[in-house]
Amino acid sequence: MSSLRVVLLLLVIATSTVLHVVPLLAVALVKVAVPARGVRRGCNAVLTAIAESWIGLNNLLWDRCSGARITATGLEQVRPDGHYLVLANHQAWVDILVLQKLFNRRIPLLRFFLKRELVWVPLLGLAWWALDFPFMGRHTRAQIARNPALGRRDMEATRRACEKFRDIPVAIMNFVEGTRFTGDKHARQASPYRHLLKPRSGGVAYVLDAMGDSLHGILDVTIAYPGGRPSMVDLMSGRVREVRVSVRVRPLPTDVPRAGDESDRATRARFQQWLNALWEEKDMEMARLLGQGGAPA
């Protein structure tokens, strides 16, 4: 019965995706063909409305079919016309659905930094492109050291995306750890945090350098699963009972390294220290959320 439930849900989601992506792409083509500022603004509003409708249907399926309850604090601080950088820990693909469930129409549409390869995902890749999601490479520091052009390409992609976002309310989403938490990754990193991987400062610094003067603040989001890290199948099968989320609005840091300026190592070090301190607080918040009847991740 559980397998049948998952199949039916997948069919509904697939049908909804097709019905939303087709008009989304039509509007995106108009935006590309007529680059006038007024036309772009009108198209952006329509594209956002279509995306929020698609997320809204997914949220309805969550309410009716998953049985999972979200306990969240801090949502009263956010606003739908704000400009935010959203920073969250990353444990499972379900995190994305949790964020969309909480923030749809409460803040501007979440735009995620995506791996460049995801542009080839059927339908969704085109939808993300139409909505101006930034596509970036995932390069290690060693790879960038060997070929600095890789880092410059990512900085340019971030700059172009941020220029588009200056004219509209936006919430730019960044999973700062760069990958989902697992015990193996935690051990390989020798992470100093009990529930988190080490934060990466590069993407956060790029956005703050490009958009800091137009952002209202940082949304610090902590996601915890008292029953353990779930899969999408767990969620659709009704095996996720509760999700706990803490939302905090934080001021922007005052000391941000300029993108591409490798010479100012002192500023970069201070910025990494600021992010590490934020992650220490997030680790304690994770412990608090999981301590309410839950086990560590």
Rank of each mutant, 00 (worst) to 15 (best):
residue 1 M to V: 05
residue 5 R to N: 04
residue 6 V to F: 02
residue 6 V to R: 12
residue 6 V to E: 15
residue 9 L to G: 13
residue 10 L to V: 05
residue 12 V to P: 00
residue 14 A to Q: 10
residue 17 T to N: 07
residue 21 V to Y: 03
residue 23 P to D: 13
residue 23 P to E: 14
residue 26 A to T: 12
residue 27 V to P: 06
residue 29 L to N: 05
residue 29 L to A: 12
residue 30 V to E: 10
residue 38 G to Q: 15
residue 41 R to V: 01
residue 51 A to M: 09
residue 52 E to T: 10
residue 53 S to I: 02
residue 55 I to G: 02
residue 58 N to H: 03
residue 58 N to M: 03
residue 58 N to K: 01
residue 59 N to D: 05
residue 59 N to Y: 07
residue 60 L to K: 14
residue 61 L to F: 12
residue 63 D to M: 04
residue 67 G to L: 07
residue 68 A to I: 03
residue 69 R to K: 13
residue 72 A to D: 12
residue 74 G to L: 09
residue 75 L to S: 06
residue 76 E to L: 01
residue 84 Y to A: 01
residue 85 L to N: 00
residue 89 N to C: 01
residue 95 D to A: 13
residue 99 L to Y: 06
residue 102 L to M: 11
residue 103 F to Q: 04
residue 104 N to Y: 08
residue 105 R to Y: 08
residue 106 R to S: 05
residue 106 R to A: 03
residue 108 P to A: 09
residue 108 P to T: 09
residue 113 F to T: 13
residue 114 L to T: 03
residue 119 V to K: 13
residue 129 W to Q: 13
residue 130 A to L: 10
residue 132 D to C: 02
residue 132 D to Q: 10
residue 132 D to W: 01
residue 134 P to Y: 08
residue 135 F to Q: 07
residue 135 F to V: 08
residue 136 M to A: 12
residue 138 R to D: 10
residue 145 A to Q: 11
residue 145 A to M: 11
residue 147 N to F: 11
residue 147 N to W: 13
residue 148 P to M: 05
residue 149 A to F: 06
residue 150 L to R: 13
residue 152 R to T: 14
residue 153 R to M: 13
residue 154 D to T: 04
residue 157 A to Q: 08
residue 158 T to F: 01
residue 162 C to V: 00
residue 163 E to F: 00
residue 164 K to H: 07
residue 164 K to P: 00
residue 165 F to E: 01
residue 165 F to Y: 12
residue 168 I to M: 02
residue 170 V to S: 02
residue 173 M to T: 12
residue 174 N to W: 00
residue 175 F to G: 01
residue 181 F to Y: 14
residue 184 D to A: 12
residue 185 K to H: 09
residue 188 R to F: 05
residue 189 Q to F: 02
residue 190 A to T: 07
residue 191 S to M: 03
residue 192 P to L: 13
residue 192 P to F: 08
residue 193 Y to R: 12
residue 194 R to A: 13
residue 194 R to W: 02
residue 196 L to Y: 07
residue 197 L to Y: 14
residue 199 P to M: 06
residue 200 R to D: 12
residue 201 S to Y: 03
residue 201 S to V: 06
residue 204 V to Q: 06
residue 205 A to I: 09
residue 213 D to W: 00
residue 214 S to A: 05
residue 216 H to G: 01
residue 219 L to E: 09
residue 219 L to V: 02
residue 219 L to W: 00
residue 220 D to A: 02
residue 220 D to P: 00
residue 222 T to M: 07
residue 222 T to P: 01
residue 226 P to Q: 10
residue 226 P to Y: 05
residue 228 G to S: 07
residue 237 S to G: 15
residue 240 V to D: 11
residue 242 E to T: 06
residue 243 V to N: 14
residue 243 V to T: 10
residue 243 V to P: 09
residue 244 R to K: 08
residue 246 S to P: 06
residue 246 S to R: 14
residue 247 V to F: 02
residue 247 V to L: 11
residue 250 R to V: 14
residue 250 R to G: 05
residue 259 A to T: 13
residue 261 D to H: 08
residue 262 E to C: 06
residue 265 R to N: 14
residue 268 R to L: 08
residue 271 F to G: 03
residue 277 A to G: 11
residue 279 W to A: 02
residue 281 E to A: 12
residue 283 D to W: 03
residue 284 M to A: 15
residue 284 M to V: 15
residue 289 L to M: 11
residue 290 L to G: 04
residue 292 Q to S: 11
residue 293 G to N: 09
